[in-house]
Amino acid sequence: MTSTHSHAHPVGRLVDGYDPEGDVALGGYAGSLTTYGLVLAGIAAAGSASGHHLVERYDLADIALGGMAVHKFTRLVSKSSVAAPVRAPFTQFEEAAGSGEHVESARDEGGIRGTIGKLITCPFCLGVWIGTAYIAGLNLAPRPTRTWAALFAVTAVSDSLQHVYARLRGD
């Protein structure tokens, strides 16, 4: 099957037929992957230049704490009412979702604004970036990173208890 969008460049021909309707922003996603790779290379270079090396193993407590913290922080960035001004240039408000969260979609304009909008409204996508920052922090600055993680892990536990309490009360 060939795409209705013929590509003269050999790399472009590799993706012909993938998305004949043009629904998937392959260029934006390729840009995101490239940026992510450059960020990883920058982190590695910064660590090497400062004499920091990757730890051989991560403590299970750091993984559990970090998992909760990354989850909570990702939800805050991607869904919270309070972070809406940060997302607004890249997203469009759809509706309130309860618990201080919004449902938003990426702007239809395409380009970098659309790509960023897709990234910051997807907690699963954003989680990779924030998780990367957390692991980098454990290697480059473990004490402040664990403090950050403790703050957001405690908040995640508190939020969970708020939901349990509300359900028990029938709110």
Rank of each mutant, 00 (worst) to 15 (best):
T132A: 04
A133P: 04
R143E: 12
V24K: 00
R167P: 03
T132S: 03
A97K: 06
T34A: 14
V55M: 07
A84N: 06
L33Q: 09
P144M: 01
G51T: 09
V154A: 10
V77G: 03
V157D: 11
G170I: 02
G111E: 11
L126Y: 01
Y58H: 08
D19Y: 09
W148M: 08
D19G: 06
F93D: 05
P123Q: 05
G42M: 12
P20C: 11
A88I: 00
V164E: 08
E104S: 13
A150I: 12
L168P: 02
I43M: 10
L65M: 00
R146E: 00
G131V: 05
I120F: 05
A46C: 13
Q162C: 08
R113Q: 15
D108T: 04
R107S: 09
R113M: 14
A45P: 07
F152V: 03
W148T: 07
A149G: 12
R75L: 04
A25L: 06
A97R: 10
A44K: 01
M1Q: 07
V39F: 08
H52K: 08
T121Y: 02
L60H: 05
G27E: 14
V82P: 02
A149T: 09
N139W: 03
A166Q: 01
Y29E: 13
V157I: 15
S80T: 05
V70S: 01
L151R: 06
H71S: 14
S3V: 09
R143F: 15
A156P: 03
R75C: 01
G51I: 10
G100R: 08
Q162K: 12
P144D: 11
A149Y: 03
G67M: 14
A64M: 12
A41C: 13
E101G: 03
P20T: 08
D159L: 03
S80W: 05
G137D: 12
T2M: 07
L161T: 15
A41I: 12
R167V: 08
L14D: 03
A83N: 02
A45R: 11
K118E: 14
F73I: 06
P20F: 10
L168H: 06
G98H: 03
T115C: 10
F90K: 00
A41K: 08
V24Q: 05
T74E: 01
K72E: 08
A88S: 12
S158Y: 14
G66D: 00
L138N: 03
G111M: 10
V77Y: 02
S105H: 06
G114F: 04
L65A: 05
I116N: 08
G131T: 11
G110M: 09
G170Y: 01
V11L: 15
G51Q: 08
P10K: 06
C125W: 03
H52M: 13
W129E: 15
A97V: 04
D159M: 02
V103W: 10
N139A: 10
C125Q: 10
S105E: 02
S81I: 06
R107I: 13
E101Q: 09
V11K: 09
F152T: 01
P123I: 08
A61T: 06
Q92G: 07
E21S: 11
F73P: 00
E109T: 11
T74I: 04
R113C: 10
A153R: 00
D108K: 04
L38G: 12
F90S: 00
V86Y: 07
T145W: 01
L26N: 09
G37E: 10
S105T: 13
S78Y: 01
P142Y: 12
L33P: 00
P20G: 04
A150D: 02
A8N: 12
L161V: 15
Y165C: 12
